[in-house]
């Protein structure tokens, strides 16, 4: 019998998280290359619509794993449900998107099944009858090809943007949906989550800015923010920052770009002293042109920059401002 890949798609408060399609696209590629079957699962309460949506994709089966106890997401509930499904269906490989929700429960799930999770993969490599997963290490300075060395089930999560969701192939006919009702005993779920909310004041909307000048820890001191601000003003740009700058209170939180901040796609993104950690990059890689100034030639930001300048930003920004003034006449 062929081996099976199980993709666990993500739903939050009854809505499918679209990054699930990226994982599905990656899983379809692995399934095709390895000659394995592909199944999908969605976990929650009242999730028939999501199951049907996934069943339209090229998968051989969709499990709708249902229990009222799964209505709000909790790690205890999701692990109990998925442990049951995986123990009985025995997939070889379980794939999920590397979202905050999955980070919250996937290591627990793998541990509960005495197995392991290769987290935050950006792709895979076929190596004979093994599948290795590629992941970033040392904040993106290196990539590693990682192998499973124990027994299945194996778990892996894909980083957002590793595959294109719109390339998840549709099936010829809808796949069968099997509803799996799980019993989750009282007391299993210990956490009591409240509804998600957004912190009130989001004064700045950076998503509409055509030009963004963004500063990272390379700016060194709070008083140096002023230099970046002057450059931004000259370019009629909005000022933005990496997370550590906002954590330090040098710029307000609503100017943070990245997975826990805003996602932008301006005409120009000028990154000053930003290393290019993936959590930052997911928020700005859609920019039409990326210019990076960083003193470290190996900084990961240069992997996605259109124009790169390896230099001390304090040497470059002043003459740059002079040239811009000249150009503007």
């Amino acid at each position: 019998m062929a081996e099976t890949i199980l993709v666990v798609v993500e739903q939050r408060e009854g809505k499918l998280n679209r990054v699930s399609y990226e994982t599905l696209a990656g899983a379809q590629a692995i399934a095709a290359e390895m000659g394995w079957q592909l199944e999908a699962a969605v976990v929650g309460s009242g999730i028939a619509d999501i199951a049907a949506e996934i069943a339209a994709k090229k998968v051989s089966k969709v499990y709708a794993v249902e229990s009222p106890a799964l209505a709000p997401y909790t790690p205890d509930g999701f692990v109990a449900a998925l442990k049951e499904l995986i123990s009985s269906r025995r997939p070889r490989l379980v794939l999920m998107p590397h979202t905050y929700q999955v980070r919250d429960f996937a290591p627990k799930l793998a541990t509960a099944l005495a197995s392991t999770l290769i987290s935050d993969a950006t792709g895979y490599v076929k190596d004979g009858d093994r599948v290795l997963f590629t992941r970033q290490m040392f904040q993106g300075k290196f990539s590693a090809d990682v192998a499973f060395t124990g027994e299945p089930p194996y778990f892996a999560t894909f980083q957002t943007g590793s595959y294109r969701g719109d390339q998840a192939a549709a099936g010829d006919a809808p796949a069968p949906v099997e509803t799996v009702k799980v019993e989750i005993a009282d007391g299993v779920v210990r956490n009591r989550p409240q509804l998600a909310f957004k912190e009130a004041k989001q004064a700045v909307d950076l998503t509409q800015a055509p030009i963004i000048v963004a500063v990272g820890r390379g700016i060194k001191e709070q008083k140096n923010i002023e230099i970046a601000k002057q450059l931004a003003d000259l370019l009629d740009a909005e000022l933005a920052a990496s997370r550590p700058i906002c954590d330090a209170g040098w710029l307000p939180m609503d100017r943070q770009i990245g997975s826990s901040g805003q996602t932008v796609a301006p005409k120009l993104y000028l990154a000053l002293g930003i290393s290019g950690a993936i959590q930052h990059v997911v928020g700005m890689k859609g920019a039409r042109t990326i210019i990076a100034i960083n003193k470290d030639a190996d900084a990961p930001i240069f992997e996605i920059a259109d124009y790169g300048i390896v230099a001390n930003l304090f040497d470059i920004v002043p003459p740059l401002m002079e040239e811009i003034k000249k150009a503007k006449g």
């Binding site: 290490m137 290196f142 990539s143 590693a144 124990g150």
Partner: peptide, 23 residues
């Protein structure tokens, strides 16, 4: 249960034009 088979500098996704010279 998992093992790094190989560690390497990431493959570049984009062609970056490096600007060089004096500031």
């Amino acid at each position: 249960l998992q093992k790094i088979e190989k560690l390497y500098i990431p493959h570049k996704a984009k062609k970056t034009v490096m600007l060089e010279g004096s500031p």
